[in-house]
């Protein structure tokens, strides 16, 4: 286990270094997030969103930014022909964990851009920032955790990025709905309306199951 963690950390550092050096992929993903928020702000200008609608719009933006970006860690290995080197460098478990960590970082960056910008552009008050941070963290873990193995799968397909969106969307829809439900109180939905706590727990258990399942399935997908 210690070896796996160490290997995962090295894979993560390699990805981070490589992506920060070129930056074009990272900036494209983050720019997409910015553009989506700006677009939502422009289209919805003047509209009075209630709390639930605000939560739905912000999570949809995060969700589509994730669908454009989260295939990157594996697709980039496939496109540059480095898969065989990575397979020699690290055990499958370390590869999965390292890529998961990288996706999680990417999700955190997307959320750190989307949430504040959304608040600013649409004039949404955040009543309970602590709760929102907890929901956002759960969202980042569930979106990146569920899609890491899907990214490895589509890396072996043709038309990778469009297949990724198609494969990831339905698997991520349940957590998306639950995250909207869970974010209610953060935007001021009165406590007692809906079941935010239950929704948050449901997101965590749903993604927990997918993460455990991915851990066991990944070697069978990654090795040839």
């Amino acid at each position: 286990m210690k070896g796996t963690l160490r290997g995962a950390w090295i894979v993560f550092l390699k990805d981070a270094r490589s992506e920060f050096r070129t930056r074009y992929a990272l900036s494209a993903i983050l720019l997409f997030a910015v553009a989506s928020v700006a677009l939502a702000g422009f289209v919805l200008r003047g509209a009075m969103l209630d709390e639930r609608q605000a939560a739905a719009v912000v999570w949809l933006i995060v969700f589509f930014a994730a669908a454009t970006g989260l295939a990157r860690p594996f697709v980039q290995e496939a496109e540059s022909g480095t898969e065989l080197l990575l397979r020699q460098a690290a055990r499958p478990e370390a590869v999965w964990l390292g890529k998961f960590a990288f996706s999680l970082g990417l999700m955190a960056a997307i959320e750190l851009i989307v949430f504040p910008l959304f608040g600013a552009f649409l004039g949404v008050d955040v009543r309970r920032p602590g709760w929102l941070a907890a929901v956002a963290a759960a969202g980042a873990v569930s979106l990146s955790g569920a899609t890491t193995i899907l990214a490895a799968m589509v890396a072996k397909a043709r038309a990778r990025s469009s297949v990724f969106a198609v494969a990831a969307l339905p698997v991520l829809l349940p957590p998306l709905v639950l995250l909207v439900e869970a974010s209610g109180p953060a935007f001021g939905v009165s406590v007692g309306a809906g079941q935010p706590r239950e929704a948050l727990l449901a997101v965590m258990s749903y993604s927990g199951i997918l993460i455990v399942l991915s851990w066991f399935l990944f070697p069978g997908v990654w090795e040839e």
Partner: peptide
Amino acid sequence: ALAAPAIQPYLHL
């Protein structure tokens, strides 16, 4: 360890 034409190093590193 295998060295083969199909194995690319990381080009940006």
